[in-house]
Each structure stands twice: as structure tokens, then as C-alpha cells.
């Protein structure tokens, strides 16, 4: 059976690619994932798009209590590869914010709104940063660990 991780770009390869795009933007790397500096995110991701990762598969927010993390899953149709980029949105829980990638991929439009609505992470540069599933005036962000 084909392994589902077979098409992942290894963390080291990915870190080397990013180093060539934006020097010193890599914070750390794991087996298949790379953490980048949130200030350099747009630079890194637009560079990766030029390197062949044409599609933004997913944007996810995760609440690690001490901090929030945003995970970007990228896909290259031409090279048949996937990549995972992670960004830590600063320390603490107050007003987590990362730059929006909506100008790089249209596909981020609804997904970033979803993360904002349910996880409360703001995407700087997204024009329509408003709730998507819940109604305006709803208090709190349900996917946060302290909501319930």
C-alpha cells in the first residue's frame, strides 16, 4: 500500500527551499513540517508558490493554550508534492494575528474567515475579515480551548 506520507516534502528539503527564498525565515523544522517567522510568511509562501506549490489546500488554526498556531497545507500539482508550513502567532492568547495570504491564493478567502470565526485568529490584510458560520455579535470563538 502506498504510504500517505510518501508525497510529503521532507522538513529538511522544505527548510532548504525556504532558506533560498528568504534567509533566516525558518524557525524550526520537523520530519515533514517547517515553522517559519510570521513576519516573513507572505515572502515565504509567495516564493513557495513560484517554486511550484500552486494550490493552498488548507488553512487551520490550532489552540495550544500558551499560543496559537496556523498551519498551511500546500500542494504542488506539477511536482506531485505536498508541504506543511506552520506559523506561531506570538506568545499569549490576546489578539493573535498573522498576515493574510489571500493575495497569493484566492483559496484562502473563505478558509481564513473560517479560522477567524471559530478560532479568533485575525488575518492582517484580508478585506472581508468577518464571521462566516456564526452571526455577527456572537461572543467568543468556539474552537478555542477556553470556550468550552
Amino acid at each position: 500500500m502506498a504510504s500517505s506520507t510518501a508525497f510529503q516534502t521532507s522538513g529538511e528539503d522544505l527548510a532548504a527551499q525556504i532558506e533560498a527564498i528568504a534567509a533566516n525565515a525558518v524557525v524550526a523544522n520537523g520530519d515533514i513540517d517547517v515553522w517559519v517567522d510570521s513576519d516573513r510568511l507572505v515572502e515565504v509562501l509567495s516564493g513557495l508558490k513560484k517554486n511550484g506549490f500552486e494550490m493552498l489546500i488548507g488553512v487551520t488554526g490550532v489552540d495550544y493554550i500558551g499560543y496559537f498556531e496556523v498551519v498551511y497545507h500546500l500542494l504542488s500539482l506539477s511536482q506531485n508534492r505536498r508541504a506543511v508550513i506552520k506559523v506561531k502567532c506570538g506568545e499569549g492568547r490576546v489578539d493573535p494575528v498573522v498576515p493574510s495570504v489571500v493575495n497569493i491564493w484566492r483559496g484562502a478567502e473563505l478558509q481564513e474567515r473560517e479560522v477567524y470565526d471559530l478560532m479568533g485568529i485575525r488575518f492582517d490584510g484580508h478585506d472581508g475579515m468577518k464571521r462566516i458560520f456564526l452571526w455577527e455579535g456572537f461572543e467568543g470563538h468556539p474552537h478555542r480551548k477556553d470556550f468550552l
Binding site: M1, A2, S4, A6, F7, E54, M55, L56, I57, L77, N80, R82, W105, R106, G107, A108, E109, Q111
Partner: peptide, 26 residues
Amino acid sequence: IDASVTGPMLRASGVDWDLRHRQPYE
């Protein structure tokens, strides 16, 4: 592709992208 659209909608535009074929699982 830019809008992350996948599935039959993408294949109807001529892009040969089916995960069962390109990244086989099971």
C-alpha cells in the same frame, strides 16, 4: 487552481488531477 478548487470541477477544466491516481492511498 488558485482558488483551491478540487475534484470533478477541476477535472472539467482539463486538469488531470485525481488523488486516487496521483497520490494513491488504500
